[in-house]
Design a protein around this nucleic acid. Sequence first.
DNA 1: GATTAGCACTCTCTTTTGATGAGTGCTAAC
DNA 2: GTTAGCACTCATCAAAAGAGAGTGCTAATC
Lengths: 350, 350
Amino acid sequence: MQLDDRKLKILQAIIRNYLETGEPVGSRTISKYTDLNLSSATIRNEMADLEELGYILQPHTSAGRIPSDKGYRLYVDHMMEDKVREVEELREMVLEKEEKVDQMLKQVAKVLAVNTNYATMISAPQYRGNKLKFIQLSAVDEHQILAVIVVEGNVIKNHMIYVEEALNQETLLKLNILLNTHLNGLSLEEISLGMIAAMKQQAGIHSDIIGDVIDAVADAIRADEDLEIYTSGTTNIFKYPELSDKQRAEELITTFEEKQLLTELVNDTLSEESKQGIQIYIGDETPIQTMKDCSVVTATYELGSGMKGTIGIIGPKRMDYDRVVGTLKTIKEQLDRMYNDKLIEKKPDA
Amino acid sequence: MQLDDRKLKILQAIIRNYLETGEPVGSRTISKYTDLNLSSATIRNEMADLEELGYILQPHTSAGRIPSDKGYRLYVDHMMEDKVREVEELREMVLEKEEKVDQMLKQVAKVLAVNTNYATMISAPQYRGNKLKFIQLSAVDEHQILAVIVVEGNVIKNHMIYVEEALNQETLLKLNILLNTHLNGLSLEEISLGMIAAMKQQAGIHSDIIGDVIDAVADAIRADEDLEIYTSGTTNIFKYPELSDKQRAEELITTFEEKQLLTELVNDTLSEESKQGIQIYIGDETPIQTMKDCSVVTATYELGSGMKGTIGIIGPKRMDYDRVVGTLKTIKEQLDRMYNDKLIEKKPDA
DNA sequence: GATTAGCACTCTCTTTTGATGAGTGCTAAC
DNA sequence: GTTAGCACTCATCAAAAGAGAGTGCTAATC
C-alpha cells in the first residue's frame, strides 16, 4: 500500500487536530475539517489504511485515532510549516543586561518556559580543551592569599589559600611571574608533573602554594565536568493531562530537579550534527527514559570559540512543533549573534 | 472545661496515630492503642470534649478525628520527645570536602531530603553590612582588565572590563593603589559620591574604569539582595496524598522552582529569635500562602561573623516533628561547628 | 458519678448498573 | 471509488445499592 497524496493530507489533518485538542480525532471531524470534500465513511477507510501503515493508532476500539511516533516523525520531517515567532522579551533582555552569563541563561530558560508553556532546560556552554590565560596571586590579609585564574573564554576561578605567615610583596611578585611564565597558554594535558616539580623547586619554601594553585588551575580548566544546567517551567507539565498523572509527573519533575540526569540529553544533542542545529526527539527516541512519553526539541547554541551549550524544550508528544522550532531558532540565533556583536563592539558590560 | 491529664494522653495518642497513618482516628483505635484501659465509649466522650476545646476536628460526621492546627501546636510545644537522629551521611560529607560553600549547601539540602522524605530548602548565608576588603585590577590581555573584589567574609566577585587600548603596568598599579587606599574597609553606605568624583578626577583619562569598578563593588557588597536558595526533594510531596492532588502539587512545586518566593520564609525565620534556633510553622502560621496546608520547620545556622542562613523542611502537617526537629538540630550544630573548626585549624581547603 | 454496652444513625467509599454518545467496521447501494 | 446506513464497541457519567467505620445517645453497671 502506498502513502498517496490524499492519505498524507488526512494524516496531516489528524495530527494538526490532535495537536490542538489532545483528544482522539474521529472520521467525521476530518470530513468537515479538510477541504477534501469526502464523507466520513471514506475517511474511515483511509484511516484504516493509515493505521495499517503505522502512522496512527487507536487508543481503544471505537475511539478516534491519534498519531503514532512514526506519524509525528513524518510530520516534523516533512509537513511542518516554518512559523518563526519572535520572542520579544528575550530580545530586550539580552540587550539590556549581559551581566553574567549564568544569570542570562536562567532568564532565557524562564522566558522560553513562559512563552511556550512547556518545560525548558539550558546548559551552560562547555569550555572544552581550554587553555590557561592568566594567573594572579594577591595577599588579601596576613593569612590569606587569593588566587585568580582566568581561562580562555574568560572563565574565572577564585581560590583562597591560607598561609601560616604573611608573604611580602616581593615574594608574591616572584611567585606570580613564576606561575605565569610556566603555565600561560597551556592546557591541562600540557602541564606535566615535571613542570610542576620544577616550579615547586624554584618556589622553595612556598612550594605548598604552588601545589595549591595547580590544583585550582586543574579545577578551573576541567570545570566542564560538572555541567551547569538550568531548568524552568517544570510545572508546565501539569497543563497536559497525558503527562500529569502522579507517577509520570513525579518522575519527570524529579528528572528536572536532578539536573545531572539531563546531561544525557545535552551530550546526545551536541554529538549529533543536525541540520540547523535543531534536533527533535519523539517519544522513545529521547535519550532520557523518563521522557519517553514526551517530545523533546533541542538546539545547540554557540557563544564563540567552540563554547557550545544546549537548549531543550520538553513537552507532550502533541507539542506545537512548528512554534517550538521557530522559537528555538530565534533564540539560538540571538544567542549566537550576541557573542559576535560583543566581539565587534568591544563594549564594556553594564 | 479543663484539659486534664487523661484528655492530654488521649490527644497525644490521636496525634501520634494520625502522624503515622494519615487517616482519621476513631475511638476504638485509641481504646486499644493506649494503656488507659478505657472503652471506646469513654474515649468518645472525651473526644467530644477535645473537639469542643478545639484540639481536634472531624472531617465529616461519623469519621474519626484529626488534629487541628491548635492540636499540633500543643503537641510541638509540650508533648514532643527529643529524638535526635544522627545524620551520618552529612557528617562524613562535611568532613570530606568543604570545597565550596554552595556545593556543600546543595548537598546538605539533598541529604536532608533523602533522610526525611520531605521537601527541603537551604539559603546561602547572607553577608549583611559587609565591608570591602580588597580590590585588584589586572590586565588579562590587551583589551580586557579583570577586577577582583573581595568583601569581608571572603565573598569574591569578578568583573571583566573592556578597554579601547591597553594600559601599561604602571597605570594599573596606580589605579590599584588609588582604589584600595580610598575604598578599603568601607561599606556601601560609606562610599560617597564625592569620594567617587575625587577618585575619577585622580584617575584622569581612566575615570571610566573607576566608574565600572565602583559599580562592581556595589554589586558585590549588596549581593545579599538576590539571596541564593537551594532546594531538594520537592517531589517528596507526592508521597503524601493530602498534598499531592494536582492543584496543590503544582502550586507547591512552582513555589520551590521560583526560589524567590521562599525568601519570605528565610526572612521570617531570621527575624524571629526562637529558642534554639528552631522554628515551627503549622498550617496558616507559615508566611508562604501556598504552604498553608503544610507544616514548615526551619533552623538558622551561622557560619561565623554574623553570616546566617536558613534551613527549611516542608512537609504535611502530620510530619514527624520529633524526628525533623532532631535532624535539624544535628545539622545546624554541625554547620555551626564547621566554621569554628576551620577558624581554629586555619586549614587550606581541598 | 464515672464507665460501659448496645443500638440506631450518618456519611464515605466502592461497586454495580444502566444510559448516553462518539466512533468504528462492514455491507450494500450509488 | 464513494457514500449511506446500521449494528456494534467501548469510555464516560450518574444514579443506586451495599458495606464499613465511626459516631451520639440512652440505659444499664460498677
